[in-house]
């Protein structure tokens, strides 16, 4: 089957690089699947998991937002942080989740910190759920 090169890069360095048969992820406008031969495209991503299918195996990468860029020869995901499911620090994510929940209870809804805590909570939940799929 045809494959396409995928790279996930973050400011701290490349996280994932490989050839896969299909990339599927959640863009802000909805679920998105990319097969080889897709037209060039850019889409912002939601906090979520990127699923990379290759030869019956599926790998999971947790991304916290960022962008998906599709070119004829390769797909790149630019995120401010991303982890392959094996390398997620689950305990840290659990702690972050508790911290965020704590903050959400204290804050007023309209407050700026509320939004931040909400995002932090989403990221933590995402990491935990991706790590369970390893």
């Amino acid at each position: 089957m045809k494959t396409i090169k995928v790279s996930v890069v973050t400011p701290d360095g490349p996280v994932y690089e490989s050839d896969v048969e299909m990339v599927s992820t959640k863009a802000q406008s909805g679920e998105l699947g990319i097969l080889p031969g897709h037209i060039p495209m850019v889409a912002p991503l939601q906090i979520g998991s990127v699923r990379l299918k290759n030869g019956g195996k599926t790998e999971y990468v947790a991304v916290s937002g960022g962008l998906l860029e599709v070119r004829p020869d390769q797909v790149s995901i630019l995120a401010q942080s991303a982890e392959v499911s094996d390398s997620i620090d689950v305990e840290r994510a659990l702690r972050a989740k508790e911290r965020a929940e704590e903050r959400l209870r204290e804050q007023q809804r309209a407050h700026v910190d509320f939004k931040r805590a909400e995002m932090a909570l989403q990221r933590a939940i995402n990491r935990i759920s991706v790590s369970e799929k390893r």
Partner: peptide, 19 residues
């Protein structure tokens, strides 16, 4: 490269430029 934008160029810039 000229891209397709999903959903629109403006919304992508909103995410991309701060980043």
């Amino acid at each position: 490269t000229s891209y397709e934008f999903e959903p629109s160029a403006e919304e992508i810039l909103d995410v991309l430029l701060p980043q």
